[in-house]
Design a protein around this nucleic acid. Structure first.
Length: 416
DNA sequence: TCTGGGGTCCTAGGACCC
DNA sequence: TCTGGGGTCCTAGGACCC
């Protein structure tokens, strides 16, 4: 039986949401109309570009490049630090609209969702017409634009939403694959990234159509199961379900930072790790989960990098316990090479309802001690050295404080 | 893209068990 | 204590995404 699947993608999500929020709070300048970007810490000029405006694209500003690089290309670039609490509210407001029409909503990320339109035609009308109605309603009520892709499976719907933006509806049904998808460069195919693309290009495979026409066994022999998968994708073959998954479930939380100087002694390194543990566990407690696994990652001044992980005997969200594990991992794996980048990450989540370590009295004392160490750390080093930690912290503050409260963005729905 | 963040998933290989 | 096979759990690292 043939299905009808929608993929809805928010255009330049973080930037759109920030711009919309500002307009609704009295700002007259629309960030989307000037060279602007979301990312890093603009004051410290540290971190990377997460999202850019269309005018910023003209300066060849790229997602993932450092703020320094971006400022070189465009000195007037207006950079705003990310506000994840706001993005979550916007994402939820969008999902609430989907819920009015759809039962099966699969949130793929904070700004992308799959919707199952199968058997809905008798209620919602023809899919393309409904998609236009939906995107226009979102624009009118929430103030930002989306691109909608429509097809018979998730892969093709996702490819379709990518083809035209912003503010567009695109179909990519199986009979349109040849004409619309096969002429595109291989890098446009979902799951063909910077490791796979050169391997294929070296073989004279340049378009998605070239992949589709390859011998399936050959690409499988070359790239194993990943090769088999992208061959299927190039031919529009993909059968995964639109699972009902309308809450964004997180599987891990991490924080990492590049340091502007070489860290050569353990004490310094552990202070950074402590700072990272602090932001990670604060977010972990916010999420309501507790974690079993702790992972640290190290990158050296020669860009040598590795990770080391361990499984705890009990899941926890306690800063001290996570830090103790991270400290042990660091001591076990550091070979004394000068360090330029450190990361801490927690995974293997369990529901945290029954563990409330942060309510224990002795923990309050520990937390106070911790705060003192963090403050010491910030005073000791240039603020640049730990700017990522600072900015993550200010995010958290935004989340916990009044700014992030449920009805703090009432205008999100009333904007005309 | 020379060097930025935060995620997810997959796989190979080792340890350990019966 | 040379060996055999199969299953599971764990870790490190690679590849992909936005």
């Amino acid at each position: 039986m043939s299905r009808i699947i929608f993929h809805v993608d928010v255009n330049s999500a973080y930037l759109s949401w920030e711009a919309t929020y500002r307009l609704q709070h009295g700002e007259t300048l629309d960030l989307r109309t000037i060279p602007s970007a979301i990312g890093g810490n603009p004051k410290k000029r540290h971190g990377i570009i997460l999202t850019k405006s269309i005018p910023a694209k003209k300066y060849k500003i790229k997602t993932g490049e450092s703020l320094m690089e971006a400022y070189k290309k465009c000195p007037n670039l207006h950079v705003v630090a990310p506000n994840y609490a706001l993005y979550m509210k916007c994402s939820n407001a969008l999902t609430d609209i989907f819920k009015e029409y759809f039962h099966k909503i699969d949130r793929y990320s904070i700004d992308e969702s799959f919707l199952d339109f199968t058997n809905m035609e008798h209620i919602l009308g023809p899919p393309v017409e409904f998609a236009y109605f939906l995107k226009n309603r979102i624009k009118k009520e929430l103030g930002f634009t989306v691109s909608v892709g429509i097809s018979s499976n998730k892969l093709l719907a996702k490819m379709a939403s990518d083809m035209k933006k912003p503010d567009a509806v695109t179909t990519l049904f199986p009979d349109e694959i040849k004409e619309k998808m096969w002429p595109l460069p291989i890098e446009d195919l979902f799951m063909v990234g910077r490791a796979t693309s050169p391997k294929l290009r070296r073989m004279g495979i340049h378009t998605i159509g070239d992949i589709a026409k390859m011998d399936h066994q050959l690409i499988k022999a070359m790239l194993k199961s990943h090769g088999s998968m992208i061959w299927n994708y190039a031919n529009g073959i993909e059968y995964s379900e639109v699972k009902k998954n309308d809450k964004l479930n997180i599987k891990g939380i991490g924080n990492s930072t590049t340091i502007s100087f070489d860290v050569t002694n353990e004490k310094e390194a552990l202070m950074f790790i402590l700072s990272l543990c602090e932001t990670v566990t604060t977010r972990l407690r916010e999420s309501g989960y507790i974690a079993r696994t702790v992972v640290i990652s190290i990158k050296t001044n020669t860009f040598n990098h590795w990770s080391h992980q361990c499984k705890l005997n009990f899941a926890t969200n306690n800063t001290t316990k996570i830090f103790q594990a991270a400290k042990k991992l660091f001591r076990e794996s550091w070979n004394k090479e000068p360090i330029r980048h450190l990361g801490v990450r927690v995974t293997d989540f369990e529901p945290g309802e029954f563990v409330q370590l942060n309510l224990f009295d002795d923990d309050t004392e520990k937390q106070e001690k911790l705060d003192k160490v963090i403050d010491d750390l910030r005073n000791r080093f240039s603020s640049k050295a730990i700017s990522r930690g600072c900015f993550a912290n200010s995010d958290i503050k935004g989340m916990i404080g009044g700014v992030g409260d449920e009805d703090d963005y009432p205008m999100m729905r009333s904007l005309l």
